[in-house]
Amino acid sequence: MKIVVCVSLVPDSTTKIKISDDGKSIDESGVTFIINPYDEYAVEESVQLKEKKGAETYAISFGTQKHKEAIKKAFQMGIDKGILIQTESDNYDSYTVAKNLAEAIKEINPDIIFFGKQSIDFDGLTVPGMVGELLGIPSVNVVTKIEYGDNLLTLEREIEGGKEVITTSIPAVIGTQKGLNTPRYPNLKSIMASKSKPIDEKKATYSGNATNVTEMKLPESKGKGKILTEGVKSVPELVNLLRNEAKVI
């Protein structure tokens, strides 16, 4: 079996984001980058599957040299091979990412392709579906449970007010959601072992964005909270503030 997991590098969720001078991208100075947290579920699922059934595992990332860090993290968790689809900048849209990933995945010809359901930087939720479409295979996103049968996967998704159970043939693209598994902390042995795992670098073959970012803005900052200190006596004032100032009741 061959498993591909696509990983992305995103700003650490505790980082304070600044917009750079061009007004279209973030200022990366002083920002620490981490593997996209949802990709950790995808990596964990790949590694667990490998441990159960035996598989060749690949982590693929698209982007500049720094994206190697996401692959290294996947290595530390137990993925064996890495491919970086190398670009000069990070200013590419989902379509370009999907197109390049699909191209690389085609060469590997895997049985299952895992993604995190979305990356926490642009929150597009689009790449897994696009890759499935470009490869002409089924794709299911936001998956919280997987049962592996012979050439058939039974998947669960949480939907409004309930659960949806889907079966799909393989190969298939699966986007992983929190709850699917508990991503492991890498232990020191696997970290040491990861240092000798190879990353294959290839140039991006497609760069014709379908969309362009024209402007980026930070959300307006929230005002300071109010604390009412008189206990029960504050209730009328609280109701008044909720109704007339916050306008929520």
């Binding site: 650490d12 969720s13 505790t14 620490t32 981490i34 593997i35 947290p37 492991r184 902390y185 890498p186 232990n187 020191l188 042995k189 970290i191 040491m192």
Partner: peptide, 26 residues
């Protein structure tokens, strides 16, 4: 941390896991 892990091995430590991202450290 690596040195620390080596020392702990001498004291029969079973496993050493690591956190590097802020969220994992927290």
């Amino acid at each position: 941390i690596e040195k620390c892990a080596l020392i702990s091995e001498k004291y029969d430590a079973a496993d050493v896991i690591m956190a590097e991202d802020t969220s994992k450290i927290e």
